[in-house]
């Protein structure tokens, strides 16, 4: 089974891009399953269901959605295999720019849009730099010049990735993304595979449900801002 991990900034067009692409995969006779990881709620599952494919949703609730994501990869794989999927599309929450969901052996797709600003590719960091394919959307509403500069900025952050222009409204670009997916090597199993970029540690009292602000309420792995040695008490 091919394991496709889709990350990207909020509202960049992840679901729109994958819907168009899955449609082409289905037309080619492939069987596709889709899973969406989110925090509190999502309506993406309804959009995937319209394609009449198996759809699962994982809500991380009180847990960091990226940690939740890694902790569930095996289960999601098994779920998709049980549904005889050739291709599993896993859309991540896409909230925290510190994390990158890419796993060696999977095809990682990062979706970003032309509106997020010229400096944002730098800020998005590992999510972008570890992607195998970068999909750039919303080129239909900015100038050609901005598209060209933006693409250059993306290349600077990730020179190895294939960069695809994509119109999430019309689906232009979906055949190319479909071909990239089909070109990727199927994965035997995700068990034992490695994250391309480690996740941040987060084991403190707030992880365990603490809600009160203040030093005496804090335990565990707590990091403080360094103000240059002047303001410490």
């Amino acid at each position: 089974m091919r394991f496709v991990i889709v990350a990207g900034t909020p509202s960049s067009g992840k679901t729109s891009v994958m819907l168009h692409t899955i449609r082409h995969l289905l037309k080619d006779g492939r069987s596709v399953a889709a899973c969406k990881i989110d925090c509190l709620r999502t309506s993406d599952d309804a959009r995937y269901r319209r394609l009449n494919i198996p759809v699962a949703v994982g809500l991380s609730d009180y847990i960091c959605p990226d940690h939740f994501y890694v902790a569930n990869l095996e289960e999601i794989e098994r779920w998709a295999q049980a549904r005889q999927a050739d291709i599993l599309v896993l859309e991540t929450a896409g909230l925290c720019h510190r994390c990158a969901p890419a796993v060696y052996g999977c095809l990682s797709v990062c979706v970003i849009d032309n509106l997020i600003g010229m400096e944002t590719p730098q800020k998005v960091g590992p999510m972008l730099s570890t992607a195998d394919i970068v999909v750039v959307t919303k080129g239909d509403i900015v100038s050609q010049a901005e598209r060209e500069v933006f693409r250059y900025k993306v290349e600077t952050v990730n020179p190895r990735a294939r960069i695809l222009d994509f119109n999430g409204l019309t689906g232009q670009g979906s055949i190319r993304l479909k071909n990239e997916i089909l070109k990727s090597r199927p994965l035997e199993t995700i068990t034992g595979k490695e994250l391309k970029y480690p996740m941040p540690a987060a084991v403190c009292s707030y992880c365990a449900g603490e809600t009160i602000v203040g030093r005496t309420y804090q335990m565990g792995n707590v990091k403080k801002v360094d103000f240059g040695g002047l303001e410490q008490c």
Partner: peptide
């Protein structure tokens, strides 16, 4: 070629906050 087709349409606008000169230098 990174871009085979350049488009100019009514729906397109400049969205970055920069002077014409700064942007053209960048491009």
């Amino acid at each position: 070629l990174r871009h085979l087709v350049a488009q100019v349409s009514q729906n397109m606008n400049f969205v970055i906050d920069m002077t014409i000169e700064e942007f053209l230098i960048m491009h």
